[in-house]
Design a protein around this nucleic acid. Structure first.
Length: 689
DNA sequence: GTTAGGG
DNA sequence: CCCTAAC
């Protein structure tokens, strides 16, 4: 079939339109797509957890008035008794569940904002935040020796050369985090101590991240795709075919466009390759598949951040791009491995050494910091492996002179991203992919949850004082979490801000609660977990009727007044992925849209040339001919572009937008379009009589 | 999987 | 660029 089609050359130098190919059932296609969608369900575990740090001054308790309709639970007015209880419980840190999340998380931001300002803002800032104002210096700083993932992992792994052409499967595990975590924490801690000693009134959170590189000069240039024509420039007359019978010059089949930041580094010129025409190019489902995988079912794409505003001065999330090697995630090549299974596999395998997901890990004893036991601290954090990079120092250090409670959120981690790339993908494309994934998350609509002592503070109307987070002993137990926006979560299915939904048929989140002994199982974690099981049962009672009740949860908690505090097991991230499985209604809205990549003039040139030669209606051939190396250009894209080109050529130049296309090209578009339209008409008329 | 066309 | 009917 293919061969036959290829032989259909020869009408005035053009190829005649080929007869429609054999068709396949649309039902098959539908079935195929459906399977794909199902496989995507567990692609994301998107609850990002935030380690928080609290600075406060209780002189003027801020009055929170950010009412939430879906959170009507009564708040808890913390009393001294409760305080004592929690002090005790502090020693029982829960290594709650989800271990797999931390290491695979992204460090997205570093945030400093007044607590009373319930609107959190994330802004990018340079790594060096020495001068960041205290009040509202929210920053996104990947705060790390980023670039580590691709730069190190691939090199250490199976990268073939500096261009990042993977020679074989790349399996990246979350192993690199801990080392860095130590490094980072050490820096942070020292700085905190220093600040305490030298700052007087205004506390500055200077955090210079060593090794932080804003730009990757090697791989990521941040430039738009550069299109390079082939050996014979399409603009050169010599490239044109001599087609005496044609109304316009046809082109040599020598133009091939590729993008520099494309999925593959290319030599730039695809020589006329006859063999290529005999075979279909290897299916590049990678793009789509990744796109679909990244297209989280649970996160709506679009600028709908309400609780968290992400922005920076450049209007782009540049820092997000810089992933830390640790925070990452896994790149998988097991294409035949069901995504759902992959997720579960990851869950179980990584959880053994991952840390918790909640803010528990930031409960670092101030004494240790003050004693200068940085190494011990780091070691501890290292052991925890899920420890937040935000190490809370002595709260007194951060006591502010004004009446505001100041928060410092070191980082947001967006865990559990699945990236699947072709082996031949470049590091640059990998980074881009991760970038897209993170952007999809951040752009999907987030809300912020507040964790106190591992419990979720659900009542938005309570003040910080009332909820008790203004108490000294709570300073290092405050955490934040990024959650899906409630507006996207039908409350009937899930209480929205609940990171996991017990009614879901996927029991993973609770598999660790095999607690007949009152202890949350830590799995095979070789590090003795610190347990903080406070209010686990309370959480279940108050919010989830269908929750499996660990009745043997023996650890008591100040239960009577903690109804507003809901323990959020750290596995909430995984559980997040579970929640939307049954929500199919909005699925179509959640799929991530591809990034827009306007065609360059060179690409247009190549497209026009190919269409002149092949005609309209043979977009796959056009793709193979002129855009075979431009992985991001599908034949549908080319078809669409041609459509818009025709439209553009017909409208007045004043009405045109974007990068101006040379009139010469537009003229050729019209000419070719007219020609091939005529040919199509002829072709249709022929069989009729 | 491709093509064509509407959105 | 997405979606989808139709092929």
């Amino acid at each position: 079939m293919v061969l036959q089609k290829r032989l259909d050359y020869g009408f005035n130098g053009y190829q005649v339109p080929y007869t429609p190919r054999a068709t396949r059932s649309a039902r098959r296609r539908s079935a195929f797509k459906k399977r794909g969608e199902d496989n995507q369900m567990c692609a994301f575990d998107l609850l990002a957890t935030v380690a928080g740090k609290l600075l406060l001054d209780k002189q003027t308790p801020p009055t929170s008035s950010n009412a939430s309709t879906d959170e009507n639970q009564s708040a808890v007015v913390k009393d001294s008794e409760n305080k004592e209880k929690q002090d005790e419980n502090k020693q029982l840190k829960v290594e709650t569940s989800d271990q797999g999340s931390w290491d695979r998380g992204f460090f997205v931001s570093e945030l400093v904002s007044p607590a009373q300002d319930q609107k959190y803002s994330l802004k990018e800032s340079p790594c060096n935040q020495e001068d960041a104002p205290l009040g509202f210096a929210s920053v996104i700083t990947t705060s790390d020796c980023s670039e580590g993932f691709s730069d190190q992992k691939l090199v250490n792994g199976k990268a073939k050369n500096e261009m990042g052409i993977l020679a074989s499967k790349v399996e990246v595990g979350p192993s690199g985090y801990r080392e860095y975590g130590d490094c980072k924490i050490e820096v942070e801690t020292k700085k905190i101590i220093k600040d305490e000693l030298h700052k007087t009134g205004k506390v500055q959170f200077g955090t210079k991240v060593d090794g932080c590189s804003l730009d990757d000069p090697v791989v990521w240039d941040g430039k738009p795709p550069a299109v390079v024509s082939s050996d014979s420039s399409p603009k050169l007359p010599s490239c044109r075919d001599h087609s005496p019978h044609s109304s316009f010059p046809a082109s040599r089949d020598c133009v091939n466009v590729f993008s520099r930041d494309d999925d593959e580094k290319s030599s730039g010129c695809t020589h006329p390759n006859t063999t290529k025409k005999s075979f279909r190019a290897a299916p590049r489902i990678g793009d789509r598949r990744i796109r679909k995988i990244l297209a989280s079912k649970y996160w709506k794409v679009g600028p709908k951040l309400k609780d968290v505003t992400l922005s920076n001065t450049d209007g782009e999330l540049r820092t997000v791009y810089r992933t830390r090697n640790s925070c990452y995630k896994s790149i998988r090549s097991e294409r035949n491995y069901p995504i759902k299974k992959r997720r579960l596999f990851n869950y179980s395998s990584v959880s053994n050494y991952d840390g918790g997901i909640s803010g528990e890990d930031i409960c670092v004893s101030p004494k240790r910091v003050m004693n200068g036991d940085v190494s011990g601290l780091c070691s501890k954090m290292h052991e925890a492996a899920g420890a937040s990079s935000s190490v809370a120092g002595p709260h007194t250090t951060f006591r502010s002179r004004d009446s505001h409670v100041k928060l410092r959120i070191k980082s947001f981690r967006v865990p559990e991203l699945f990236i699947e790339m072709p082996e031949t993908a470049t590091v640059g494309s990998l980074k881009r992919r991760v970038m897209e994934a993170v952007n999809a998350i951040l752009g999907g609509g987030l809300r912020v949850g507040v964790l106190l002592q591992g419990k979720k503070v659900r009542d938005d109307n309570k003040t910080l004082l009332q909820t008790g987070i203004s108490h000294d002993n709570q300073l290092d137990a405050l955490g934040f979490s990024l959650e899906p926006n409630t507006s996207q979560t039908p409350p009937t299915l899930c209480s929205g801000d609940y990171p996991f939904m017990l009614s879901c048929d996927t029991p993973q989140p609770f598999t660790r609660y095999t607690s007949t002994s009152g202890i949350i199982q830590q799995g095979t974690c070789d590090v003795a977990p610190e347990l903080h099981v406070t209010n686990i049962s309370n959480f279940i009672e108050s919010d989830h009727d269908s929750a499996p009740s660990p009745t043997d949860m023996s650890i008591d908690n100040s239960t009577k007044d903690s109804k507003a505090l809901v323990t959020v097991p750290a596995m909430s991230v995984e559980a997040l992925a579970v929640v939307p499985v049954h929500r199919k209604s909005k699925r179509s809205e959640i799929i991530q849209r591809r990034i827009r990549r306007p065609f360059s003039v060179a690409e247009v040139e190549a497209l026009v040339q190919a269409v002149e030669k092949l005609g309209t209606g043979r977009w796959r051939d056009v793709k193979l001919r002129a855009f075979d190396n431009a992985k991001h250009r599908t034949y549908v894209d080319l078809k669409d572009k041609w459509k818009t080109l025709v439209h553009t050529a017909r409208i007045s130049p004043q009405q045109r937008r974007g990068e101006p296309v040379p009139q010469e090209l537009l003229d050729r578009v019209l000419t070719a379009h007219a020609y091939w339209s005529q040919q199509q008409a002829k072709q249709q008329l022929k069989p009729q009589p």
